[in-house]
């Protein structure tokens, strides 16, 4: 009798837990979809709305590290919308908020590689508004890089981030297109076999890596690079036909270079 009672209570608990889990998963997947759509359009207002969605999910499940990860990622994406206009106070506001969120996520789950990859990206933003802390930025970026590498050296977003960093770093300071291509090609290869543990885990970057590979080839412009650039633009758009990076930015670079 006692066993049946315990079983029933456990069953009810499990049912209610699964019910919350389903709501949580559904809400996460919906918010993640909205995030992707807002990012493709580089729509700051839509991103701010998505941020609210993630904040509200915390009402369903308190202190879930993956929600904090997405809050940080959304903050990073909002900051990115201000990059072109160099609106430094906004970049700083959302980058600093991104740091707060990702630190909360890491505090709960210190073993998630993508959190450190995101931290590397957030640190790059700091160059735009506090160059005078050069020493600290380099140290913090290196610390995040080491942690990410240690947790999952085969994370394609880790190599994508290294590639992007090399692309924007002048040759004289250890960056450059050739170094970027090395990391981006590795990232591209790793994406081919990559499968995330949960559907709502971060899976960004598949289109982006093709975008940056195309940018590298356009910039290098050796024999055959034009064709490779086109190939990656097409591949990226095949993965994500709505990619703002590819449709608006990379395609424009390509046209300016080759269609005059």
């Amino acid at each position: 009798m006692k066993q049946k009672l315990v079983f029933l209570v456990l069953l009810l608990f499990a049912v209610s837990t699964f019910s919350i889990a389903d709501d949580f998963s559904d809400a996460m997947l919906k918010a993640k979809k909205n995030l992707k759509s807002a990012m493709d359009k580089s729509d700051e207002k839509a991103l701010i709305k998505v941020r609210g969605e993630f904040e509200r999910i915390l009402q369903l499940k308190k202190d879930v590290w993956i929600v904090y990860y997405y809050l940080a990622y959304t903050d990073y994406s909002i900051a990115a919308t201000y990059m072109e206009g160099q609106v430094k106070d906004k970049i700083k506001k959302y980058t600093e908020s991104g740091f707060d969120m990702i630190n909360k996520s890491i505090e709960i789950n210190p073993d998630f590689c993508d959190s450190y990859v995101l931290k590397m990206n957030l640190n790059f933003n700091r160059w735009l508004y506090e160059q005078d802390k050069m020493n600290d930025i380099i140290a913090a970026s290196t610390e995040a890089e080491e942690a990410a590498k240690k947790l999952d050296a085969d994370n394609p977003r880790f190599h994508l981030t290294l590639g992007v960093s090399s692309y924007y770093t002048p040759d004289m300071f250890g960056g450059g297109v050739d170094k970027a291509l090395e990391s981006l090609n590795k990232s591209n290869d790793l994406f081919k076999t990559r499968k995330e543990k949960e559907e709502y885990y971060p899976d960004w970057g598949r289109d982006m890596v093709n975008g940056f590979l195309a940018m590298c080839y356009i910039k290098r412009d050796k024999d055959g690079d034009k064709e490779k650039a086109k190939e990656h633009i097409d591949k990226g758009l095949e993965i994500n036909p709505e990619s703002g990076l590819l449709k608006v930015y990379v395609q424009k670079l390509y046209d300016e270079k080759y269609k005059k």
Binding site: A27, R51, G52, R56, Q59
Partner: peptide, 13 residues
Amino acid sequence: ANLVIQGTIDGGT
């Protein structure tokens, strides 16, 4: 700004 009814995901921005 984010608004949410406590204990639910009903809210807006």
